[in-house]
Design a protein around this nucleic acid. Structure first.
Lengths: 264, 264
DNA sequence: GTATCGAGAG
DNA sequence: CTCTCGATAC
C-alpha cells in the first residue's frame, strides 16, 4: 500500500512575512502539496528558495502586488497549470494544477466581501456574490477528479461559527452567502471533506480574528477554509485535520492550515 | 578617588525600534548619563519603563511626532532642565540639564541639511546653517561648566571622513558647514573631546550610511557625533571612546555611541 | 490587530 | 538601506 497523499491548504497572510512558520509547518507535517492563499507577493519576489530547500521543487504561482495571490508548492510533479480570472479584473484568486495521477487541484481565494452585507450599499459584497456565481458556472462545466481548496470566506453551517445567531448578520455567515455557497456546492458532485470527517454538530473552525487579544479565551472562530472533492476523489480520502495549534505560533496567520490525506 | 562620571551620546534613530540594543549597551557600559538624538517619539510614548528598570530614573524628554526628538536619561539627579527652540519652528532638537555638581549637559540634534549643499537651491541646507548661527549666538552667551553633546551632522576635519576630497561637495563636510561649525566652536572655550584624545591624523568616525550593504567593507564613515566641553570640564576628562562595534549589532543605528569619562 | 504600500526624511 | 506615518484591506 502506497503512502497517503497529503494535501494542505493555508491562507498565509503574506508568505514573505510568515516564511518561518511555513517552514516549521512543512518540516513537521511534510505534506506532498501545499496550497497557499493571500501570498501578497508578485511572482518574482516569491520566496521559492525556502520551498525548494524543503523539497517543494514544483511550484506554480499566481501572485499580484499587495493583495491576494495564490500558490501551489509540491513535492510531486505538477502539470497543466492554469490561472483563471473569472471576474476579468486581474485579481490573483485562482491557480490550478494537475497531478500525475490525473487529479486536479483548484486553489481559490474568494473575496472577503467588506463589512456591510448589502449588495447595493457595499460593492465588495456584490463582488463576492458575483465571484461565487461565476465560480458556480465554472464548476458546472468541470469534469474529472478534482479537489477544490482554499479560503472560501464563508462559514456555512451553525457549527462553523462560534455563535450562529450573533453572526447571521455578519459577512461570511449571512443567509445570502450561505445560499450562494450551496449553489456552488450543488453544481457538481462536491463533498465537503471537513464535514465528511467531522459532521455537525462538531465545532470546526479555521480562522480567528487578530482583533481579540487572546484568541483562545473566547474562541470566536469561523470555518472559512475548505476542501471539497468530487465524489471519486472523496472516496479515497482517509483523514482530515485542522491545525489549530498554528494559531498560537509566533507571528501567526489569522487562518490555520487544513489537511486531507488520500489513499490513491 | 571617586568613580569617573561616564557620559554617552548616541543618535539612536528611533528609540522604540532600537530599545533592545540600547538596553544591551546600558547593561554592558553602564554610563551615568545617556544623551539620545532622533528618538522619533512623542514624550507620552517614550519607553521610560525600560530605562527605569536599568536604573535610569532621572529622565528629561523633548520629543515630537515622527522626526527628531532628544532625551537625557540619568542614574544621577538632574535639575534645571530646558528645551530650546532656536529656530522657533517647534522642532525638538535640544534638551539641557544641570547635574548636582553644577555641570550642564546640552544635548543637540543639528538638522541634516538635505542633499544639495546650496542655501538657495535647498532650503534644508539653509536651515542647517541658520541653526548653527543661532546656536553660535546662544553659545557666546553661555557661562558655567558645560558639556555640549550630540549629532552635529558635520564632520569638520579631513580625518573625520573616509575620503576628504571626495566629500568636499557632500553635505556634512562642505567648507561652508565646516566654517559655520568653526564659528560655533570659537564662540566659547569649547574643547573637542574626540580630537583632544585622538588628534589628527587618527581616523575617527561615528556614522556609517545604511546604504552600503556591509559598512565594514569600504569603511566609509564620518564623524558626525561630537562632545565639546568648556575648558574647565575638559580638564577633568580622562577618557574618550567610540563604540564602533555597535554598528554591527542586530538592527543597528547608523550612528554609534560615543562616551567620555570625567574625574570630577 | 496585522499585513502592504508609498511618501518623506536621513 | 532604514525608519515613521497614513491609507487601505482583512
Amino acid at each position: 500500500m502506497p503512502l497517503p497523499l497529503k494535501i494542505v491548504s493555508w491562507n498565509i497572510n503574506s508568505v514573505r512575512f510568515r516564511i518561518e512558520i511555513v517552514e516549521k509547518f512543512l518540516r513537521e507535517m511534510a505534506p506532498d502539496v501545499l496550497c497557499l492563499q493571500e501570498t501578497k507577493v508578485i511572482d518574482q519576489d516569491f520566496p521559492t528558495a525556502a520551498f525548494r530547500a524543503l523539497g517543494y521543487r514544483h511550484i506554480v504561482l499566481h501572485g499580484q502586488k499587495m493583495h491576494h495571490g495564490v500558490a501551489i508548492l509540491s513535492k510531486v510533479p505538477l502539470a497543466e497549470d492554469d490561472r483563471l480570472d473569472w471576474q476579468a479584473n486581474r485579481e490573483a484568486r485562482h491557480v490550478g494544477v494537475r497531478l500525475a495521477n490525473g487529479m486536479r487541484i483548484e486553489n481559490v481565494y474568494v473575496p472577503a466581501g467588506g463589512d456591510v452585507p448589502d449588495r447595493d450599499a457595499n460593492p465588495k459584497f456584490g463582488q463576492k456574490l458575483d465571484f461565487l456565481e461565476r465560480m458556480t458556472r465554472w464548476s458546472e462545466a468541470l469534469s474529472g477528479p478534482t479537489l477544490l481548496v482554499g479560503d472560501l470566506n464563508i462559514a456555512p453551517l451553525e457549527a462553523d461559527v462560534w455563535n450562529h445567531k450573533q453572526l447571521l448578520g455578519v459577512v461570511s455567515h449571512t443567509p445570502v452567502e450561505v445560499a450562494a455557497m450551496a449553489q456552488l456546492k450543488a453544481s457538481n458532485s462536491w463533498v465537503d471533506l471537513g464535514r465528511h470527517f467531522f459532521p455537525e454538530p462538531a465545532r470546526l473552525h479555521t480562522w480567528w480574528s487578530y482583533r481579540s487579544a487572546d484568541w483562545t479565551v473566547n474562541d470566536r472562530g469561523r470555518r472559512l477554509d475548505h476542501m471539497w472533492a468530487t465524489a471519486d476523489i472523496a472516496a479515497t480520502a482517509t483523514r482530515h485535520h485542522v491545525f489549530e495549534e498554528c494559531r498560537s505560533w509566533l507571528k501567526p496567520s489569522d487562518h490555520v492550515p487544513i489537511m486531507t490525506e488520500f489513499q490513491i
